[in-house]
């Protein structure tokens, strides 16, 4: 009737290692979360050269409130990946603006586009009633400015 291990049992001694069996679950959960919440850029990349501006601000606007208008150097205008003639811009924007009153128009023009085209677009936007406009620019550092 000897007591096994003289009364000291291994069972009572707590494990000195951190339990890592659930670590994989946590990591995969995070991975899946980020994959699900990531929204991919819908538009195709256009070949434009950005303008730089030092006063560039971050536009804190929900993605669904922003409509991009691209103006390529050749004068082609794209709205939501569709080529749009200058005269039709207001017709395209008007229903979008009627749907969403908080609409912001981001004008992404090539730096060499003549201003007359930009002016035509802003006039079309005024016709459509969409008056919140952003001239998309890149942030410019002060050191670069002297070269202007």
């Amino acid at each position: 009737m000897a007591i096994k291990g003289a009364g000291f049992k291994k069972k009572s001694g707590s494990d000195s290692e951190i339990p890592t069996s659930s670590l994989a679950d946590i990591a995969f959960l995070l991975l899946v979360f980020f994959m699900v919440t990531t929204v991919f850029r819908k538009e195709r990349k256009r070949d434009i050269e950005w303008t730089d501006a030092e006063a560039t601000e971050k536009i804190d606007e929900k993605r669904k409130n922003i409509v991009h208008i691209w103006i390529e150097r050749a004068g082609t205008v794209y709205i939501n990946d569709v080529v749009t003639p200058f005269d039709d811009i207001s017709e395209v924007i008007r229903p979008l603006y009627a749907e969403n009153r908080e609409l912001v128009i981001a004008l992404r023009g090539d730096r060499e586009v003549p201003y007359s085209q930009i002016n035509t677009i802003t006039e079309e936007l005024q016709q459509a009633g969409a008056v919140r406009v952003t001239f998309a620019t890149r942030v410019e550092q002060r050191a670069v400015r002297a070269r202007r």
């Binding site: 536009i59 005024q126 919140r132 620019t137």
Partner: peptide, 21 residues
């Protein structure tokens, strides 16, 4: 890997409000 390769599509520019027509 995914965290570092993700590029956030930040909207940047010069905001201006055009006058109503």
């Amino acid at each position: 890997f995914f965290l570092t390769t993700t590029v956030f599509n930040e909207e940047k520019g010069l905001p201006i409000v055009l006058p109503e027509q």
